[in-house]
Amino acid sequence: MQIQTTPQDHHIARLAALAIGLHMVEAILPSPIPGVKPGIANIVTLFVLYRFDLTTAAWVSLLRVFAASLLLGQFLTPTFMLSLSGALTSLLMLVLASRLPRRWFGPVSLSVLAAFAHIAGQLLVVRLWLIPHVGVAYLVPVFATAALIFGLVNGLVVARLLASHDAAPRS
């Protein structure tokens, strides 16, 4: 059986593969604090949002979450649920943030906002499902700090990639 694919599908698959690769790299990196991760795969999501559109970015992000969890054997585990809830809330935030005027708000803004939405979504799942305890509030400042730092760094990387991508001839 032959599935008809469009060039658009190939594009999405290629970008998702890149995001999955970054996700896997991050999965083997040790983290000093459990749960605090830089989220480098989101660089791809944001890059796609700028170079293609929001729909493509959503495809790449969600394909990455599902495929990487299958590869890591985490499909439908709490880790996967956290990954998915974070991806969904940050995509939702990107829907809103991408309406901000591009003249003033660059990739760094979008990255930081998405990072905050990401931890908000994850902490919501943690609070409601995994650890239904008010003590979770104690962790919020730690994750918020991580979101600010990694959101900034990832955003700078995206801005940098976009700048070189603009200068380079289109492939």
Binding site: W104, V108, S109, V112, F116, T145, A147, A168
Partner: peptide, 28 residues
């Protein structure tokens, strides 16, 4: 790509980016 990297040593932050960062820092 390499020459482009040299041409753009570091991405510039826009006014809104600074605003976002400031607001985020305040939130933290």
């Amino acid at each position: 790509a390499l020459s482009a990297a040299r041409a753009h040593p570091f991405p510039r932050l826009l006014a809104g980016d600074w605003l976002t960062l400031l607001a985020s820092l305040l939130l933290v």
